[in-house]
Design a protein around this nucleic acid. Structure first.
Lengths: 343, 343
DNA sequence: TTGAAAGCGATACCAC
DNA sequence: GTGGTATCGCTTTCAA
């Protein structure tokens, strides 16, 4: 059932039917109702392909996933973001286009999205310092919103980010308040923007109390279990090991846990651990005791907000860049309570 | 730059240019080369929207993600599958459409995909026993491939699956060979097809040796950390606890590990653990010793194969249903070596 | 081997 | 208010 057929059935012109369906004001209310009813009755759905061609809009938002950073898509955080954004797209009649491409084809993927007209805008993930994609988007001329920020980028752009610095600062302060003097930081790779901000938060908390940073307690590596394990093990082997850890992700957190276990220590007893980007619970006596619920829901909200921002830019195009900084939830239960000092 | 402009520049008709670009045989080779060169020089990309309308094809494959099973998208397995499928789509000029919809709108999402013409086919994820989506796809009349199988579905359909039964059978046999007599099964929810098959594999291995199954050692629950923790804890509290675990997923594996740790036991020493769908390594003395690399790469391959199958169905349409059963890799290192018997 | 022209199914401008 | 018609950019007969 297409527009023409429906129009014929109603004894109206396609023009009028189209207008009635799209809420144009000049249509007679009685006519509109007849049209609406008929459309529903015949289960009419306008052909998206035709709308796209006629309007010149793609009605789709692109997300490019370079394959080498495939762990990004695996990252629960990424999935939460996608879920939030996806909801918004569906609600607004937009499609979500996922382009999985080999690393070296990333730039081409963005260019194609634009030149073949398959997306009206894109969302950039996991920005780095001085990310080349931002000038690229400007050059290509495609509306975009960044999930995160790209330090050292001069041009203005729209972004939605979680306050990583603040989250790590608060977590560090929490541990310092518990009496920990040596806190190990198990961070992600510090060319990723968010990792830089997290380290800054950790450093700020120390600075505010006049505490020196010990480089031996600050690691930066992939957010994988093996990296987390190695970093934590190395720190625990120090003559003056940390009594607490602040870990950047659920995955590296698994490695940290294993390192602690490997040393015959117990989490929440010998060593306190705060894991960012985790919504898991620390379990004690079979009860759930949350230690750190950081950004799961914030990230989903970030996805929603980024999508709304992008759709607004696209439809009422030409807006000034907008920015949104979200605070991560911080829920800490008693199981992180003061760890026995080991010195 | 569109087809018409390019044709004008070349002094040819759009028809000829189109034919040259699309590899039609009747085009003069010299002409074709001129056209190709010009297209490249002017960076011509055909407008997908127009192609879609003209050909009546969507050039896109849909994946519907109901929101209530959002953990599915978070599941690394799902991500691997998507990565594999996505590669195939890109290579063949297809787009991947991800529809994130509220649970109750799932059926509508599939219907819209068809009636609005935004996908030429779909891939179904996480089939259940007697999955209603399979008759739905037939009713809607949209080509589809299932990732997994739906027990008790009479109608034929195309699927790609990993041999879950066999993987669990082999893992169980491996543990039995090590001398374990009591092996705890921490399985997913057994209305999911794959979970049923996994339990069957576990049971088959026991049956082959004339061993009785102990229901107290077989749990079935969500594949979450808390569920894994509870299941493993309950089993370890038995008068005759298991000396080994076979765990369905990386996530529930985290709970199992924690349960073991909580009892003051050590993985790989007091208790052997095999975790399915995990590509992590068990770490001992700082070295990586793989315990069980099950399906990560197989799942990615499954994504590739499912996508290829679907594209084949769509283009040379009307094929008989095809099926592919992939064997999971099974890599076991020495750290799972015989656990000291605890009885 | 090439080209003219009719779709594909909507939108949107211009008359009436 | 409603309808005729050009248009979006390509594919695909049908002729030449």
């Amino acid at each position: 059932m297409n527009l023409k057929e429906l129009a014929t059935k109603l004894g109206l012109s396609p023009t009028t039917v189209s207008r009635a369906l799209n809420g144009y004001p000049e249509v007679n209310e009685a006519t509109r109702e007849r049209v609406m009813a008929a459309a529903k009755r015949h289960n009419y759905r306008p052909n998206t392909r035709a709308i796209r061609l006629a309007t010149g809009r793609a009605l789709a938002i692109g997300h490019v996933i370079p394959l080498a950073t495939r762990h990004e898509i695996m990252n629960p955080i990424f999935a939460d973001f996608i879920a939030g954004a996806g909801e918004t797209y569906s609600r607004n009649g937009y499609d979500m286009l996922l382009s999985v491409v080999p690393d070296e084809d990333e730039e081409k993927a963005y260019r194609d999205l634009k030149s073949r007209g398959s997306a009206d805008g894109v969302i950039l993930h996991a920005p780095r310092m001085n990310d080349p994609r931002i000038p690229l988007m400007h050059e290509i001329g495609i509306p975009f919103v960044v999930h995160g920020r790209a330090t050292a980028t001069a041009e203005p752009y729209s972004w939605v980010d979680v306050n990583n610095r603040r989250a790590f600062q608060r977590a560090t302060e929490f541990l310092l308040d518990l009496g920990h003097a040596r806190i190990g930081l198990v961070n992600g790779l510090e060319f990723m923007d968010f990792a830089i901000r997290r380290r800054t938060g950790y450093a700020d908390a120390h600075a505010a109390r006049g505490l020196q940073l010990d480089p031996a307690l600050m690691s930066s590596d992939e957010m994988t279990e093996i990296a987390g394990f190695r970093a934590a093990t190395a720190m625990l082997d120090l003559p003056d090991p940390p009594t607490a850890f602040l870990v950047a992700s659920m995955i590296s957190g698994m490695g940290v846990r294993r390192a602690i276990e490997g040393k015959g220590l117990t989490m929440g007893k010998d060593v306190s651990v705060i894991i960012h980007d985790d919504d898991l619970s620390y379990l004690r006596n079979g009860e759930d005791v949350p230690i750190f619920t950081a950004t799961r829901s914030s990230v989903r909200e970030a996805g929603r907000i980024a999508a709304e921002m992008l759709l607004a830019i696209i439809t009422q195009h030409g807006e000034e860049p907008q920015n949104r900084l979200l605070e991560a939830e911080l829920i800490i239960g008693q199981s992180t309570g003061p760890a026995p000092r080991r010195t």
